[in-house]
Design a binder for these strands. Structure first.
Lengths: 326, 326
DNA sequence: TTGAAAGCGCTACCAC
DNA sequence: GTGGTAGCGCTTTCAA
């Protein structure tokens, strides 16, 4: 049997309600009593029983996150950041790798204080089932029934193109995968609009549709580009993974970044600085995204419907050494 | 407020203890009463309160898993399989991406019935802290304090070499990363011993130490091999990710598997069949591993110390079309 | 076959 | 400041 506040009460010779107060750092307890109790708690190896606490307080100080089914560096980084942010707010986070529906069921049984989902696990979330739990999504959930945090992808690409243009680049290539994924489609459109807006020509061969968003897709796409008779002066990569493949291909071709070719990658994550060539990148800083998600969720927990159905985060350009004047 | 058994009791006109029994499918309640109650429960949208139940029964029917910090296809596949297995046993699984110690703390607060960790998150697990929770590790935890499930890596490589030898191969190359990781070191040693046992020569250039276990590491290593004047007739890849790089490099060199070169990959996961070239593979079937982990944990939960400190799983060879007679 | 009552570990409210 | 007590929602005796 594990040790309870009653054990501590007996051990220290105070009532168990005093112990409870002391453990909750209540000002209603004399400091020395508090210290004695805290010390005893540590000595006895006391661990609070969440279930009991929760039964009374209706709070678990825990939030649940449904793991985004797809494997992408930027996404798992985001999950990590969200976790950090959650802990910073004195909450804990548990994950489920199940489908949204079974994850929801479990989270509700655990009475989590809030749930974070991703666009990836959209689907027909069954909200009829019982009690209300605040939910927030990163990216638009299919049925639009959950408030979500979005990113201005178009603007991101617009900014990237604009930056390269300001450095004198006119022959810019975009490598991305724009199938079945609104995020990717938005990026592509943003690129096209940006180019058109600045009256830059879009060559057919410089709009690369890769088959996927993996490292390798960026790698092969770039190798193809570099084999052509004329190569672009700059490349924009649609994601972190894609970009790392792009860099590798350029280096293998004995070209240097940014002297021979400038590169900007989408995804504003710290790892961009750790690549073979630290990359100038565009995107919403991952930290800000995590903060927005967690704070919105907590706000929603305080007051239902207290946040807008859609929040759009603004991308930022982080300049490193991967782009040069042309 | 969500609906409780008391609400159901009032609604159906029976006592709440009868409702409790009915909901737990107790034989002590008349079928028609039971049906009436079950129907009412559904109508009212009743969801059991885990916290309350747990407070009494001391069981959560939940197991916690500490996410292995590293990203490897085979590992995340294993986690998925473990999840499936856990559900099959009518348990739920929650994950934590924190360090073992904070994960443990959280899991204990939630009073999970068992915890699964990985060798990767070994460390100084602080077991002094309070109550006992059954724990099992995949791979040896550093301080040997947790019972673990291991794999006979040496034997795996031995079997792979033996199989290739039986097909007439003598010039076999091994691509792996054997630094700081006992698993990888065991694989390498198994390969060497297997070769020596069969009196096959081990060329220096056919023992490839990659810098890592990523896709790309297998890819470049293979490209290097294929550039040499004589190429081996068979390659053994040390992991799934490595192997997919190996295949890619071979295909890009316009060589065919298995006609020009035979390939065996380590890791017995279903994805091996989905590669560009479905791969013959060696390793403990991932499903069996998951079953062993979960069943051991559940057994441990029933009876402390009921399983050996170490269990070793036997690798199996799965033959696909990536090896041919030489 | 059903109901009443105790109690799991805790918080919150009351009185002292 | 401190202690007593009620009660959260549930399972589990025990009595009817």
């Amino acid at each position: 049997m594990s040790v309870t506040i009653k054990d501590i009460a007996r051990y220290t010779g105070v009532s168990f309600s005093t112990v409870s107060k002391a453990l909750n750092d209540s000002p209603l307890v004399k400091p020395e009593t508090k210290n004695k109790i805290l010390k005893a708690a540590k000595e006895l190896g006391y661990e609070p029983n969440l279930a009991a606490r929760q039964l009374v307080s209706k709070e678990t100080k825990t939030i649940g996150l449904v793991w985004p089914s797809i494997e992408r560096t930027a996404l798992s980084t985001l999950v990590t950041k969200i976790n950090d942010e959650v802990e910073k707010q004195s909450y804990s986070m548990i994950l489920s790798i199940n489908s949204v529906n079974s994850a929801f069921e479990m989270f509700k049984r655990f009475q989590v204080d809030g749930i974070i989902i991703f666009k990836e696990n959209t689907l027909d979330i069954n909200f009829n089932t019982g009690s209300y739990v605040p939910v927030i999504s990163y990216g638009n959930s299919k049925n639009n029934t959950v408030p979500f945090i979005d990113v201005n992808y178009k603007k991101a690409m617009f900014k990237a193109v604009d930056y390269l243009h300001s450095l004198g680049h006119t022959d810019i290539s975009f490598i991305g995968c724009s199938e079945n994924d609104q995020r990717q489609i938005d990026k592509l459109n943003g690129f096209i609009e940006g180019m058109e807006h600045l009256c830059l020509p879009i060559k057919k061969q410089s709009l690369i549709h890769t088959g996927g968003l993996e490292w390798y897709d960026g790698y092969t796409a770039t190798r193809n580009i570099l084999e052509a008779s004329t190569i672009p002066s700059a490349i924009i990569g649609g994601s972190y993974d894609l970009s790392s493949g792009i860099i590798r291909a350029i280096n293998e071709a004995n070209l240097t970044i940014p002297n021979d070719i400038s590169v900007i990658g989408y995804d504003n994550i710290p790892q961009m600085a750790q690549l073979e060539t630290p990359l100038t990148c565009i995107g919403v800083p991952i930290q800000k995204t995590a903060e927005a998600i967690v704070s919105s969720l907590l706000q929603l927990k305080e007051k239902r419907d207290s946040i807008p159905a859609k929040q759009t985060l603004e991308p930022e350009l982080v300049i490193r050494m991967s782009c040069s004047k042309r």
